[in-house]
Design a protein around this nucleic acid. Sequence first.
RNA 1: GCUCGCGUAGCUCAACUGGCAGAGCAGGGGACUCUUAAUCCCAAGGUUCAGGGUUCGAUUCCCUGCGCGAGCACCA
Length: 455
Amino acid sequence: MRDRREKLERLRASGVDPYSRGFMPTNTTEGAKALLGDAERSRPVALAGRLMVKRLQGGLVFADLQDGHGRIQLMANRNVLGEEEFSRFADLDAGDIIGASGPIFRTKRGEITLEVHSIQLLTKSLRPLPEKWHGLKDVEIRYRQRYVDLIANPQVRAVFRARTRIIAAIRGLLDERGFIDVETPVLQEIPGGGHARPFQTHHNSLDRDLYLRIALELHLKRLLVGGFERVYEIGRVFRNEGLSPRHNPEFTLLESYQAYADYEDVMQLVEDLMVVSAMAADRPLETSYQGESVNLTPPYRRERMADLVLEHTGRHAAGEELNDLFEEHVEPRLRQPTFVLDYPVEISPLARPREDDPRFVERFELIILGREYANAFTELTDPIDQRARFEAQAAMRAAGNVEAHPMDEDFLRAVEYGLPPCGGLGIGVDRLVMLLTDQPSIRDVILFPVMKSEA
RNA sequence: GCUCGCGUAGCUCAACUGGCAGAGCAGGGGACUCUUAAUCCCAAGGUUCAGGGUUCGAUUCCCUGCGCGAGCACCA
């Protein structure tokens, strides 16, 4: 650090701007490598990136230049560059961002290399890079200073590129099927659509408390009332809960709603989404997660919750007890993709009851490796029933259950205008990305995860 | 919030039952015209997370705090 500050001042004194501009690369490192083909030398190209490793060898300097796409070796030759520019090149530090120009050729060892004919220092780096061989391992620094993680660990960049591709593929499929991509409020008066403690905030000029949304559901359904028949949103939601390898207080949720569909149709959609997502992540359907093999090839097994609980525990149960037994005894044992069907009505205040047995609703979750990846139902469209469900939740709330669903009169008013029969879906995007990039922690798929204050 | 583990140089890691805190890489100086974890020589680099305690002596043992991780709780 100190040495580099001094070097910075020396550079300035010698008339070099250590934070210059005006350099435009003609190619990426990968593009430049491809340019060579079978030729001995290419036309001159201009590349820009971060200098990663420097190897001095007398009158030659080899260095690796890293850009957003990859790396290429640079070679500077004293006899080609001239004494002055050669020593300027040799004086560069690992971490500096530079522009380099010259033709591409192959070294005697066969490495595709740019022969440096001119260089420009674009940004001087004042801090040393992590160890070149072991990279950066300290997870605390990796998460707090993700920029360093991304410089030092190319596989981390690959994970986040895969994340972006997965989300693009999801959008692509939904767009193609006529869903429209919408944005609904993050700041809400009534944080509904799920069971979770919200973050509270305050609007100063309205002098009113607001909450960060915990789900997307109720606004998306209002849009179905309004006449949009297929909508979806991929957006950040916030839940005021503990942290774990599977929980970050802010995370990305996909929710979609499709008029005139039911949960059977949504199961089909989920299977299709899983396939396009895996493809986008370059992940085969027969794959593994953290060493455990899993086959994502549809169709997925479909089982009623009550049947699964009976099978695993020998017990007939209903209501919340059924769900508790399921979570404790069944869910952890469901390793291959399974649609668990027909949840108790008590824990599903927004879902449509089964006609043949109103103790249950037309709801499913997709469980893979003991974890939930999707939650969906045939939506409740009866405003009278919906009001009764909210009132039941409000009673639980009054009894001290802070996560019971709050009453939302405006939502009820919307449903009273007429919500078309529809199927809704929610998918935790971060957890899906974890599965498809084989990452053990949600922090590995969120660029800047929530951390405690730095000491 | 609870339990357990971890915290040593910029980075990756050592340091026996408590006995002078070390190496590699990075950074500094030097040699070297086909290296690619370059190599070789020289010098430098520390609040051992913080504070307290036990001890002749603490990186090591004890307590408290902070941070990180895992598990639990919580989170349908």
